[in-house]
Amino acid sequence: MQDLFIGLMSGTSMDGVDGVVADFSAGGVHVLRHASAPFDDALRAELMALNASGPDELHRGWLAGNALMRVYARVVQDLLAQTGLQPSAIQAIGAHGQTVRHRPQQFDGTGYTIQLAQPALLAELTGIRVASDFRSRDVAAGGQGAPLAPFFHQAVFGRAGETVGVLNIGGISNLTVLGADGSILGFDCGPGNALMDAWTQEHTGRAYDDDGQWASTGRVLPDLLAAMLTEPFFALPPPKSTGRDLFNQPWFRAHLARFAGSAPADVQATLTELTAQACARDAGRHARGLERLIVCGGGALNGHLMRRLQALLPQAQVVSSADAGLPPLQVEAAAFAWLARKCVRGEALALQNVTGAGGARVLGGIYPS
């Protein structure tokens, strides 16, 4: 009997939704189908705006969550149509929602993380049980609430006796270290594609720098790079997590102001190098003996960025997750299918070494179909 779950992910790049149907019946993770849907300009603009304080946030946030669930539901319908499956064949949907604030352990010692999602509406639209709100229990238990995928990475990419890194580069970058001794470590490195994408949109009108071609025509501005790398977050030890709350346009503009008049292509090259160096430095510090770095997320499709990572980590083989059996844009969605299965089965995850939570916890809440 098939053990089928759908995973849905919209990440900090805020470009749209990726979804997969995953089959766990053979003991591993087998992705049957992948589907995606872009955000329209109005929804993307509203989600971006909700990353900062503004008027009538509660009202706008709830309506944005409704709109987001309708995009999620379209992806689910596409997946069902591709596979010929009925909703009753799916055990549950794992729906991450859209992160708009991430401030764990701040203000009152607990802090919060906010993912816009209306899982009850998604259950209503699809007729399928929904597991959602995966991060808040970890935050309540004293954790960072991120990253949550390291145990999934171990199940899919781990190799006995070998130190493997799994680097997800979405809007923000995060690294999982799977130690040769079976240990697991995971944390956010810093910016991924978010700053690069915003600069590309502003100066070329394109949503992203395809294959890093534009960045490859520029030269890195060493003083701008050095200034950005003084950000204290980069020197923090794990567990640590971040988001657009820190690595946003005001943060970047404050640094860029000292370098007015710089060629846009040079700035793009520098932003790409910032991502590459932040990730490589963390891999060097926390992944001793690293033999293989598996890259997923949109950053794995940026050839220039991949080449820079390889140059900065000559001791390791830097590869796309596609070379390890799972295409880059499917990894996070598959992870949330896996997390939904854990939630439905009541299986706790011991994320203490990843998020800093006070112990193993079952993550997520369930909304019946």
Rank of each mutant, 00 (worst) to 15 (best):
E231A: 13
L271Q: 02
P327N: 14
A348N: 07
A276D: 00
T242A: 15
E273L: 08
C343Y: 01
C296S: 11
E231Y: 01
R253D: 14
G299D: 04
K342T: 11
H286N: 12
L313H: 02
A265K: 13
E332C: 04
G303M: 11
A316V: 06
L326G: 10
K240Y: 04
K342H: 14
E347R: 12
P250C: 05
K342W: 06
R288I: 08
W251G: 06
R345W: 07
P314M: 14
P232F: 14
T230S: 15
L329V: 10
A276Y: 01
G297I: 02
L313P: 00
Q352T: 12
A254F: 13
G303C: 13
G325I: 09
L312F: 05
A254I: 06
P314G: 14
H255C: 09
W338V: 04
L293K: 05
L312A: 13
G261R: 07
D323T: 06
G298A: 10
G299A: 02
F233S: 11
L305F: 09
K240N: 14
W251C: 09
G297C: 11
F234L: 15
C279A: 13
L256P: 00
R292K: 15
L274C: 04
Q277A: 13
C296F: 03
P264D: 14
L256K: 01
R308Y: 04
P239S: 10
D323R: 12
A316N: 04
P237I: 10
D266N: 09
P237Q: 15
F234Y: 15
A300V: 08
G299K: 00
A263T: 12
L329K: 05
L329G: 13
A278C: 12
A260D: 11
L293E: 05
R288L: 06
L229Q: 15
A269M: 12
P238A: 14
D266W: 00
E332P: 02
S262Y: 06
L329W: 01
K342S: 11
V295N: 05
A287L: 08
C279L: 03
Q315D: 10
V295H: 00
K342A: 13
G261Q: 10
L229H: 07
S241F: 05
L256V: 03
R292M: 05
H255F: 13
S262F: 11
A263G: 15
T230Y: 09
T270Y: 07
A280T: 04
R308M: 11
C343S: 09
F234K: 03
P250V: 08
A280G: 13
G325H: 02
V319F: 08
A254P: 02
L329T: 06
H286C: 15
G261N: 07
A280C: 09
G243Q: 01
W251A: 15
T230I: 10
V344Q: 12
A257H: 10
L351P: 00
Q277L: 15
D245F: 01
A334M: 01
H304K: 05
G243W: 03
D266L: 09
G243M: 09
Q317R: 04
